[in-house]
């Protein structure tokens, strides 16, 4: 599975979604491209009689109305609560299992093939099972989030711990470090960049799991709202919710980045 290592290693630099204001400030062309897109959208919305493409201004109006009425606030809170629980669980289990797999060869041999199988499976296909088991409860939503986020965290953590420079481990050993010290002082800090790559990917996937699970169960949260207005053919409201989801995704990513910067300052 050496190829997968390359995959997670390179991910950091390229796929990190930059905050939207940065290209705006740094790069006039990119800012203009965004502005042009919005203007084009607005023009098409007015000129073309497409029910699914309202003018951008209508989307903004719908968003403003949502915020004013408190509909968005309540649903964002519900969604974020599920996200926090599901992602928190994935984080604890993922880091633990990943660290054990990375440190102990036998654990890796035992679990590797199953973790990869789950990573490759389309996570959403398990939603009907969770729905059957948990019914309409919050557990179903949270379980979907865990399915999305958990396995990529395990794989990256295990790769990170396993690929720590053996010379470092040997040196720590020769200076008499025990297993606990070895783990806290050497393995944990040295594997941090890869571990965080996994956490970032896991967070991105968790947000997808959050919205997909909510749309499937269609009871609470932003996803349920999108389904509801979709069935009423209220395109500008659906766009407004999609915009909120994008903001939630960027916000979640930003939080992970902040924490990562705090914890990996030693690397600079």
């Amino acid at each position: 599975m050496a190829g997968a290592t390359a995959e997670v290693l390179k991910v950091r630099r390229v796929s990190r979604p930059r905050a939207l204001w940065r290209p705006l400030r740094e790069n006039a062309i990119e800012g203009l491209a965004l502005l042009g897109g919005v203007l084009l959208w607005e023009a098409c919305g007015w000129l073309l009689p497409l029910p699914w493409l309202p003018p951008f201004s209508h989307v903004v109006a719908a968003l403003a109305q949502f915020i004013e009425s408190g509909v968005i606030g309540a649903n964002v809170a519900v969604s974020l609560q599920g996200l926090a629980i599901g992602f928190g669980f994935s984080l604890v289990v993922g880091l633990t299992v990943g660290a054990l797999m990375g440190r102990y060869r036998r654990v890796e041999q035992a679990l590797d093939v199953y973790v990869y199988a789950m990573l490759l499976s389309p996570s959403m296909v398990f939603a009907p099972i969770f729905f059957a088991i948990f019914g309409l409860s919050d557990m179903a939503r949270i379980a979907v989030i865990v399915m999305y986020a958990l396995f990529v965290i395990i794989i990256n953590t295990s790769t990170g711990v396993r690929t720590v420079d053996p010379a470092l481990v040997e040196m720590a050993r020769s200076f008499g470090a025990g297993e606990r010290q070895l783990f806290l002082r050497i393995l944990l800090p040295a594997s941090l960049p890869l571990v965080f790559a996994g956490i970032r990917l896991g967070m991105g996937r968790a947000v997808k799991g959050m919205i997909n699970g909510e749309m499937f169960i269609a009871l609470v949260g932003l996803g349920a709202l999108a389904q509801k207005y979709g069935s009423q053919f209220e395109a500008s409201k659906v766009f407004a919710i999609a915009l909120v989801v994008l903001i939630v995704a960027l916000f979640a990513n930003w939080i992970v980045q902040i924490i990562e910067q705090r914890l990996t300052r030693w690397a600079d």
């Binding site: 790069n27 990119e30 491209a33 497409l50 991105g204 997909n212 996803g223 999108a226 979709g230 395109a235």
Partner: peptide
């Protein structure tokens, strides 16, 4: 270079954006 500059912000947005909320719009279209 020009295509890159125009498309870049949208690429970042699409990488971050979950696709599912757009499904009701696909249905309408």
């Amino acid at each position: 270079r020009w295509l890159e500059s125009i498309a870049d912000p949208y690429v970042h947005m699409m990488l971050a954006m979950p696709t599912a909320p757009l499904i009701p719009l696909v249905m309408m279209a």
